[in-house]
């Protein structure tokens, strides 16, 4: 006896119905939850930026953000200005304040999609780069977003700098690096290594910070060697961090040079 579920017509109808049901359920879930998800992402950006300027709830060993209900308030209180630099061919061709950017685009500068801007730059178009200016203990901290790729997927971060381009704080995150290996770039011991590192050498050339293997400085005492200790088993992710620091922070150099003039 032929089973009714073996018929071609049944198979096709089943497939169509299943795809329709599953598809609409997923679409419904995605759109019903998108508001909350976007809000979470927005808060996370604020937390990331605050983390890079040293405003966080870190305990002794692990990295902890400031809580989500305090983040918007802290963000407004500590981030005194959000600049948007438009860069073309390594030159800053336009510099906007937050208000100017808001008037033009109706959107907050910290919501600029770094990934999109970076691919714009690849196509030879101008790239908009946000720069957040925070004030902490009377000192100004300039926080720049960076974006690149690790072993499996995107990695990104925020680096807080003083006016001499010395790192004051760093936050890294990743989309899908290997847990226990590349994923450790968002561990406190790795991020904290960057604090105090210089990005510029004495003659004023941009050097960046290299995630270096075997640099014989595991406790990171030397702050002007442009190197931090790499993570075991995460060479490509580490190289990705090096590359995004070099490529993205370099673009801010003219801004810092102007600052000193």
């Amino acid at each position: 006896m032929e089973n009714r579920t073996d018929k071609n017509s049944y198979t096709i109808i089943f497939a169509v119905v299943m795809v329709a049901i599953v598809g609409s359920l997923l679409a419904y879930a995605a759109s019903a939850l998108s508001g909350r998800i976007d809000e979470n992402k927005r808060l996370e950006k604020q937390q990331n930026i605050l983390y890079a300027m040293g405003i966080n709830d870190n305990d002794e060993t692990s990295a902890v953000f400031i809580s989500t209900d305090k983040a918007p308030e802290a963000f407004d209180a500590n981030i005194v200005e959000q600049l948007v630099l438009t860069v073309e061919d390594g030159e800053i061709i336009k510099q906007q304040t937050r208000q100017e950017y808001l008037d033009e685009n109706g959107d907050e500068p910290y919501l600029i999609d770094i990934k999109k801007e970076k691919s714009n730059a690849k196509d030879g178009k101008a790239r908009r780069m946000p720069l957040f200016i925070g004030e902490k203990d009377g000192e100004k901290i300039y926080i720049a977003p960076i974006y690149g790729k690790g072993l499996w997927d995107a990695i990104w971060g925020y680096v807080g700098l003083d006016e001499n381009m010395v790192v004051q704080g760093a936050y890294f995150d990743h989309k899908g690096e290997t847990p226990g290996l590349g994923a450790n770039i968002k561990e406190r011991y790795f991020m904290d290594d960057f604090i105090g590192e210089h990005l510029m050498d004495e003659s004023g050339n941009f050097q960046g910070v290299t995630v270096a293997k075997g640099n014989a400085d595991p406790t990171n005492q030397r702050k002007t060697d442009f190197k931090v200790d790499a993570l075991a088993g995460a060479t490509i992710t580490g190289d990705g961090v090096t590359a995004m620091i070099k490529s993205d922070l370099r673009l801010y150099v003219p801004f810092f040079q102007n600052l000193k003039k």
Partner: peptide, 21 residues
């Protein structure tokens, strides 16, 4: 009710659906 010819695909859809939700 799962048609035996496409049962593997149906299983895959079920897993993927659950995980994504």
């Amino acid at each position: 009710i799962i048609p035996s010819k496409i049962r593997i695909i149906v299983q895959l859809v079920v897993v993927a659906f659950l995980v994504i939700i």
